[in-house]
């Protein structure tokens, strides 16, 4: 079948790129996150049903599924972003390196410093480029300007944005193009030095050229970070992820190595979705 072949091809290309860049294959990994029997509710409405999953360290895990399937909710449960929403509650456990993140003694601010997040719509603060990237370290108490400048430079370099903006760090971040803004948001998330990076459809609002730059970036970043990405786009999942999880109507249907999931899905629903029969 052609669609299977095309996915296989995509995955194959990725593996070639990986070996070219000497990125180690993803076989002997630890799990960074361990989620067990998570049910999530917005008020009366249940958004997640008994989801259990592990997320591998220093790898890209992609969540796919039709809109409203709970993949974003799951992502936001990992750094407790849903705490802000009135009436949101849950049961089950979410372990980050073995620690329950919903335990009463956990400081949600400390958690979010470890688990960064990038949103679908780029959300630069209406400040200068420098101040955007320096925001996280600054609120965490970093006052030393030299130290901040170093962090800003490093983060922008890691986000592959440094060369484009190094001469205009004091310009407003709103003056950047859409793709640059999104990479700025990634740099900003990296500046707090997180272990885990959550990305909620980071490329869906971007043009193809910017998308491919962001994808390259994610590819680079997985050497140091555990990345979880929600995407609409199955090709994108195939291009960049090592693991793929398929959500449907609040249930985790299937999670497997990306290649396996796209070529030999175990569940009927997964197959229907990736072959385009619905969603």
């Amino acid at each position: 079948m052609t669609f299977m072949q095309s996915f296989t091809e995509l995955v194959h290309q990725r593996q070639q790129r990986e070996s070219a860049k000497r990125i180690r294959p993803v076989e002997t990994e630890f799990s960074k996150l361990d989620v067990r029997n998570l049910n999530f509710f917005y008020g009366e409405k249940q958004a997640l049903f008994d989801v259990s999953m592990t997320v591998a360290e220093r790898a890209v895990t992609a969540f796919i599924g039709p809109s409203g399937c709970g993949k974003s909710t799951f992502l936001r449960a990992i750094n407790r972003m849903n705490d802000i929403i009135e009436g949101a509650h849950h049961n089950g456990t979410v372990l980050l390196e073995g620690q329950e993140i919903y335990a009463p003694d956990v400081d949600v601010v400390a958690l979010r410093k470890r688990v960064g997040m990038v949103f679908q719509k780029s959300t630069p603060f209406p400040k200068s480029i420098f101040d955007n990237v320096a925001y996280g370290p600054k609120v965490a108490g970093q006052r030393n300007h030299k130290g901040l400048a170093e962090i800003v430079e490093q983060s922008l370099k890691r986000a592959a944005l440094w060369d484009e903006v190094k001469d205009r760090l004091q310009d407003s971040a709103l003056a950047l193009s859409g793709g640059q803004q999104q990479r700025l948001c990634i740099a900003r998330a990296l500046a707090t030095n997180p272990d885990v990076l959550l990305m909620d459809e980071p490329a869906s609002a971007l043009d193809p050229a910017s998308t491919s730059r962001v994808e390259d970036l994610i590819f680079e970043l997985k050497q140091n970070y555990t990345i979880v990405i929600v995407t609409h786009n199955m090709q994108q999942a195939a291009r960049i992820s090592d693991w793929t999880a398929f959500f449907y109507q609040g249930y985790l249907i299937e999670k497997d190595h990306t290649q396996k999931l796209f070529t030999t899905p175990k569940k009927k629903q997964t197959e229907d979705y990736i072959t385009g029969r619905f969603g």
């Binding site: 972003m81 979010r112 997040m117």
Partner: peptide, 28 residues
């Protein structure tokens, strides 16, 4: 917009940081 507040929280801000260092400058 709410997205700006969420971005602030995602960077490890307290509510105080978000209010005073994100929302107030944005509404300046």
């Amino acid at each position: 917009p709410r997205g700006l507040r969420e971005a602030g929280y995602a960077l490890g801000s307290t509510k105080y940081d978000v209010s005073l260092k994100v929302v107030v400058p944005a509404a300046f």
